[in-house]
Protein backbone atom coordinates (compact mmCIF):
# COMPACT_ATOMS: atom_id res chain seq x y z
CA UNK A 1 0.00 0.00 0.00
CA UNK A 2 1.40 3.37 -0.85
CA UNK A 3 0.32 6.73 0.44
CA UNK A 4 0.71 10.14 -1.04
CA UNK A 5 3.00 11.95 1.36
CA UNK A 6 2.24 15.62 1.73
CA UNK A 7 4.64 17.64 3.81
CA UNK A 8 3.44 20.88 5.31
CA UNK A 9 4.65 24.25 4.01
CA UNK A 10 6.57 24.71 7.25
CA UNK A 11 8.44 21.43 6.77
CA UNK A 12 9.16 22.23 3.13
CA UNK A 13 10.46 25.66 4.15
CA UNK A 14 12.56 24.04 6.87
CA UNK A 15 14.00 21.54 4.39
CA UNK A 16 14.77 24.25 1.86
CA UNK A 17 16.32 26.57 4.40
CA UNK A 18 20.08 26.73 4.86
CA UNK A 19 21.03 27.18 8.48
CA UNK A 20 23.31 30.06 9.53
CA UNK A 21 23.80 28.55 12.97
CA UNK A 22 25.37 25.45 11.44
CA UNK A 23 27.95 27.46 9.48
CA UNK A 24 31.44 27.79 10.89
CA UNK A 25 33.05 31.23 11.18
CA UNK A 26 34.66 31.18 7.73
CA UNK A 27 31.47 30.00 6.06
CA UNK A 28 29.57 32.77 7.84
CA UNK A 29 31.95 35.40 6.45
CA UNK A 30 31.52 33.85 2.99
CA UNK A 31 27.77 33.91 3.45
CA UNK A 32 27.66 37.61 4.41
CA UNK A 33 29.98 38.86 1.65
CA UNK A 34 28.96 39.18 -2.00
CA UNK A 35 29.87 36.14 -4.09
CA UNK A 36 33.50 36.06 -5.18
CA UNK A 37 34.61 38.99 -3.04
CA UNK A 38 35.81 37.07 0.09
CA UNK A 39 39.44 37.82 0.93
CA UNK A 40 40.71 36.64 4.30
CA UNK A 41 43.18 38.72 6.30
CA UNK A 42 45.59 36.88 8.61
CA UNK A 43 44.12 33.55 7.53
CA UNK A 44 44.98 30.17 9.02
CA UNK A 45 48.02 29.76 6.76
CA UNK A 46 49.60 32.87 8.29
CA UNK A 47 49.67 30.81 11.48
CA UNK A 48 49.23 33.67 13.89
CA UNK A 49 48.18 31.63 16.88
CA UNK A 50 47.84 32.16 20.61
CA UNK A 51 51.27 31.96 22.27
CA UNK A 52 49.61 31.39 25.65
CA UNK A 53 47.51 28.31 25.09
CA UNK A 54 50.39 25.83 24.41
CA UNK A 55 51.97 26.81 27.74
CA UNK A 56 48.80 25.50 29.35
CA UNK A 57 48.66 22.33 27.30
CA UNK A 58 45.84 23.52 25.05
CA UNK A 59 45.90 22.93 21.29
CA UNK A 60 45.79 26.17 19.31
CA UNK A 61 43.80 26.94 16.20
CA UNK A 62 45.52 28.58 13.25
CA UNK A 63 43.05 31.47 13.12
CA UNK A 64 42.66 31.69 16.92
CA UNK A 65 38.91 31.37 16.50
CA UNK A 66 38.45 34.63 14.62
CA UNK A 67 38.04 35.04 10.86
CA UNK A 68 38.56 38.50 9.35
CA UNK A 69 37.52 38.87 5.73
CA UNK A 70 37.41 41.83 3.39
CA UNK A 71 35.00 41.92 0.50
CA UNK A 72 31.80 43.62 -0.54
CA UNK A 73 28.29 43.73 0.84
CA UNK A 74 25.62 44.92 -1.57
CA UNK A 75 28.46 46.07 -3.84
CA UNK A 76 30.09 48.26 -1.18
CA UNK A 77 33.47 47.61 0.48
CA UNK A 78 33.03 45.74 3.73
CA UNK A 79 34.81 43.83 6.43
CA UNK A 80 33.29 40.83 8.19
CA UNK A 81 34.66 39.57 11.50
CA UNK A 82 33.30 36.18 12.49
CA UNK A 83 34.00 34.42 15.77
CA UNK A 84 34.19 30.61 15.91
CA UNK A 85 32.16 29.40 18.89
CA UNK A 86 33.57 25.89 18.66
CA UNK A 87 37.13 27.00 19.47
CA UNK A 88 37.56 27.64 23.20
CA UNK A 89 33.92 28.68 23.50
CA UNK A 90 34.43 31.70 21.26
CA UNK A 91 36.60 33.27 23.91
CA UNK A 92 38.52 36.50 23.31
CA UNK A 93 42.26 35.94 23.56
CA UNK A 94 45.08 38.26 22.63
CA UNK A 95 45.37 37.23 18.98
CA UNK A 96 41.70 36.92 18.05
CA UNK A 97 40.86 40.12 19.96
CA UNK A 98 43.66 42.03 18.30
CA UNK A 99 42.58 40.80 14.87
CA UNK A 100 39.15 42.18 15.64
CA UNK A 101 40.38 45.56 16.94
CA UNK A 102 42.81 45.96 14.06
CA UNK A 103 40.15 45.12 11.47
CA UNK A 104 37.93 47.86 12.91
CA UNK A 105 40.88 50.27 12.88
CA UNK A 106 41.73 49.53 9.24
CA UNK A 107 38.08 49.94 8.29
CA UNK A 108 38.04 53.33 10.02
CA UNK A 109 41.25 54.41 8.19
CA UNK A 110 39.67 53.39 4.89
CA UNK A 111 36.59 55.41 5.73
CA UNK A 112 38.74 58.39 6.64
CA UNK A 113 40.49 58.00 3.28
CA UNK A 114 37.12 58.23 1.57
CA UNK A 115 36.59 54.50 0.99
CA UNK A 116 33.20 53.90 2.70
CA UNK A 117 33.86 50.52 4.35
CA UNK A 118 31.10 48.74 6.28
CA UNK A 119 31.59 46.36 9.14
CA UNK A 120 29.75 43.27 10.38
CA UNK A 121 30.66 41.41 13.54
CA UNK A 122 29.26 37.86 13.73
CA UNK A 123 29.56 36.88 17.39
CA UNK A 124 29.76 33.54 19.15
CA UNK A 125 31.47 34.34 22.41
CA UNK A 126 31.55 33.25 26.01
CA UNK A 127 33.61 36.34 26.84
CA UNK A 128 37.26 36.83 27.65
CA UNK A 129 39.59 33.80 27.37
CA UNK A 130 40.49 32.91 30.93
CA UNK A 131 43.84 31.37 29.92
CA UNK A 132 45.03 34.79 28.71
CA UNK A 133 42.63 36.99 30.58
CA UNK A 134 44.80 40.09 31.13
CA UNK A 135 45.68 40.35 27.46
CA UNK A 136 42.09 39.58 26.59
CA UNK A 137 40.66 42.31 28.80
CA UNK A 138 43.11 44.86 27.42
CA UNK A 139 42.32 43.99 23.84
CA UNK A 140 38.58 44.07 24.53
CA UNK A 141 39.01 47.70 25.62
CA UNK A 142 40.72 48.39 22.28
CA UNK A 143 37.85 46.70 20.44
CA UNK A 144 35.32 48.97 22.17
CA UNK A 145 37.35 52.10 21.36
CA UNK A 146 37.68 51.12 17.71
CA UNK A 147 33.97 50.27 17.43
CA UNK A 148 33.00 53.70 18.79
CA UNK A 149 35.41 55.37 16.38
CA UNK A 150 34.27 53.35 13.38
CA UNK A 151 30.52 53.78 13.86
CA UNK A 152 30.91 57.52 13.27
CA UNK A 153 31.55 56.60 9.62
CA UNK A 154 29.36 53.60 8.93
CA UNK A 155 26.64 51.47 10.46
CA UNK A 156 28.23 48.66 12.46
CA UNK A 157 26.13 45.51 12.58
CA UNK A 158 26.39 42.70 15.12
CA UNK A 159 24.90 39.30 14.23
CA UNK A 160 24.20 36.82 17.04
CA UNK A 161 22.62 33.53 16.01
CA UNK A 162 23.89 30.93 18.46
CA UNK A 163 24.48 28.17 19.31
CA UNK A 164 27.00 29.68 21.76
CA UNK A 165 25.41 33.11 22.00
CA UNK A 166 27.09 36.25 23.20
CA UNK A 167 28.28 36.78 26.77
CA UNK A 168 30.80 38.71 28.81
CA UNK A 169 32.89 41.38 27.11
CA UNK A 170 31.34 40.78 23.74
CA UNK A 171 27.83 41.40 25.07
CA UNK A 172 28.96 45.01 25.68
CA UNK A 173 30.40 45.08 22.16
CA UNK A 174 26.91 44.16 20.93
CA UNK A 175 25.60 47.12 22.90
CA UNK A 176 27.94 49.42 20.95
CA UNK A 177 26.66 48.28 17.55
CA UNK A 178 24.37 50.34 15.38
CA UNK A 179 22.14 47.32 14.92
CA UNK A 180 21.91 43.88 16.53
CA UNK A 181 20.47 40.99 14.52
CA UNK A 182 19.41 37.91 16.49
CA UNK A 183 17.69 34.55 16.08
CA UNK A 184 15.40 32.95 18.63
CA UNK A 185 18.14 30.40 19.36
CA UNK A 186 20.66 33.10 20.21
CA UNK A 187 21.29 34.41 23.72
CA UNK A 188 22.74 37.73 24.76
CA UNK A 189 23.74 38.71 28.27
CA UNK A 190 26.62 39.93 30.38
CA UNK A 191 26.82 36.90 32.70
CA UNK A 192 26.20 33.38 31.50
CA UNK A 193 23.43 31.37 33.19
CA UNK A 194 25.86 29.04 35.04
CA UNK A 195 27.78 32.01 36.43
CA UNK A 196 24.61 33.65 37.73
CA UNK A 197 23.47 30.42 39.34
CA UNK A 198 26.89 29.91 40.93
CA UNK A 199 27.06 33.45 42.30
CA UNK A 200 23.43 34.07 43.22
CA UNK A 201 22.12 30.58 43.88
CA UNK A 202 19.36 28.42 42.45
CA UNK A 203 16.64 30.59 44.01
CA UNK A 204 17.77 33.41 41.77
CA UNK A 205 18.58 31.57 38.56
CA UNK A 206 18.30 27.94 37.42
CA UNK A 207 20.81 27.46 34.59
CA UNK A 208 19.45 24.02 33.66
CA UNK A 209 15.94 25.39 33.12
CA UNK A 210 16.30 26.19 29.44
CA UNK A 211 12.86 27.75 28.83
CA UNK A 212 13.56 30.06 31.78
CA UNK A 213 17.09 30.95 30.57
CA UNK A 214 15.87 31.76 27.08
CA UNK A 215 12.94 33.74 28.49
CA UNK A 216 15.52 35.99 30.11
CA UNK A 217 18.33 36.26 27.57
CA UNK A 218 17.02 34.60 24.39
CA UNK A 219 16.63 36.40 21.09
CA UNK A 220 12.87 36.86 21.34
CA UNK A 221 13.11 38.56 24.74
CA UNK A 222 16.08 40.71 23.68
CA UNK A 223 14.18 41.79 20.59
CA UNK A 224 11.05 42.59 22.65
CA UNK A 225 13.10 44.67 25.09
CA UNK A 226 15.05 46.79 22.68
CA UNK A 227 18.43 45.05 22.90
CA UNK A 228 18.11 43.64 19.38
CA UNK A 229 16.74 45.32 16.27
CA UNK A 230 15.93 42.36 14.05
CA UNK A 231 14.67 38.89 15.00
CA UNK A 232 15.14 36.15 12.38
CA UNK A 233 14.55 32.48 11.75
CA UNK A 234 17.78 30.49 11.44
CA UNK A 235 18.19 31.06 7.71
CA UNK A 236 21.53 31.99 6.15
CA UNK A 237 20.01 33.96 3.30
CA UNK A 238 17.70 35.83 5.68
CA UNK A 239 20.74 36.94 7.72
CA UNK A 240 22.48 38.26 4.59
CA UNK A 241 19.31 40.01 3.52
CA UNK A 242 18.76 41.61 6.92
CA UNK A 243 22.34 42.88 7.01
CA UNK A 244 22.03 44.30 3.49
CA UNK A 245 18.78 46.07 4.33
CA UNK A 246 20.18 47.58 7.52
CA UNK A 247 23.15 49.02 5.63
CA UNK A 248 20.76 50.49 3.06
CA UNK A 249 18.80 52.07 5.91
CA UNK A 250 21.95 53.72 7.21
CA UNK A 251 22.71 54.74 10.79
CA UNK A 252 19.73 54.59 13.20
CA UNK A 253 18.23 57.86 14.41
CA UNK A 254 19.68 57.25 17.83
CA UNK A 255 22.37 54.75 18.80
CA UNK A 256 21.51 52.37 21.63
CA UNK A 257 24.36 53.73 23.76
CA UNK A 258 22.85 57.20 23.43
CA UNK A 259 19.56 55.94 24.88
CA UNK A 260 21.01 55.33 28.32
CA UNK A 261 18.60 57.73 30.03
CA UNK A 262 15.64 55.75 28.70
CA UNK A 263 17.13 52.46 29.91
CA UNK A 264 17.78 53.96 33.35
CA UNK A 265 14.17 55.15 33.53
CA UNK A 266 12.98 51.65 32.65
CA UNK A 267 15.18 50.04 35.28
CA UNK A 268 13.86 52.46 37.89
CA UNK A 269 10.33 51.39 36.99
CA UNK A 270 11.09 47.87 38.29
CA UNK A 271 10.93 47.06 41.98
CA UNK A 272 14.27 45.41 42.87
CA UNK A 273 12.70 43.74 45.93
CA UNK A 274 10.59 41.57 43.64
CA UNK A 275 11.66 38.54 41.59
CA UNK A 276 11.08 39.62 37.99
CA UNK A 277 10.06 37.33 35.19
CA UNK A 278 10.53 38.00 31.49
CA UNK A 279 7.02 39.39 31.20
CA UNK A 280 7.65 42.02 33.93
CA UNK A 281 10.61 43.35 32.02
CA UNK A 282 8.66 43.55 28.77
CA UNK A 283 5.88 45.39 30.62
CA UNK A 284 8.28 47.85 32.24
CA UNK A 285 9.85 48.55 28.84
CA UNK A 286 6.40 49.10 27.35
CA UNK A 287 5.32 51.31 30.23
CA UNK A 288 8.35 53.53 29.76
CA UNK A 289 8.46 53.80 25.98
CA UNK A 290 10.19 57.18 25.87
Amino acid sequence: MTFEITLSDEVLALSARRSYIELNARARALQLLDDGTFHELLGPFDRVESPWLPMQGIVTQSDDGCVVAKGKIDGQPAVVIAMEGKFQGGSIGEVCGMKMAEAFRLARLDNEKGIPTRAVLSLESGGVRLQEANMGELVIAEIYAEMVALRKHTPLIVVITGPTGCFGGMSLAAGLASYVVMTRQARLSMNGPEVIELEAGKDEFVAADKPFVWSVNGGAQRFATDFADVLLEDDADAVTQAVTELFRKGQPAQLRTDKYELFIKRLKFLDPAKQWVAEDIRNAWKAVAK
Partner: peptide, 21 residues
Protein backbone atom coordinates in the same frame (compact mmCIF):
# COMPACT_ATOMS: atom_id res chain seq x y z
CA UNK B 1 14.19 20.28 18.86
CA UNK B 2 12.32 23.17 17.29
CA UNK B 3 12.81 21.57 13.85
CA UNK B 4 11.32 18.33 15.20
CA UNK B 5 8.34 20.28 16.51
CA UNK B 6 7.92 21.78 13.02
CA UNK B 7 8.14 18.32 11.41
CA UNK B 8 5.46 17.08 13.81
CA UNK B 9 3.11 19.90 12.86
CA UNK B 10 3.33 21.21 16.41
CA UNK B 11 2.19 17.89 17.93
CA UNK B 12 5.48 17.04 19.65
CA UNK B 13 5.83 18.92 22.93
CA UNK B 14 9.43 18.57 24.14
CA UNK B 15 10.02 18.41 27.91
CA UNK B 16 11.38 21.64 29.41
CA UNK B 17 14.99 20.52 29.49
CA UNK B 18 14.94 20.08 25.71
CA UNK B 19 13.27 23.41 25.05
CA UNK B 20 14.84 26.80 24.73
CA UNK B 21 11.58 28.61 24.14
Amino acid sequence: MKDLVTWSGGLYEPPARFRSW
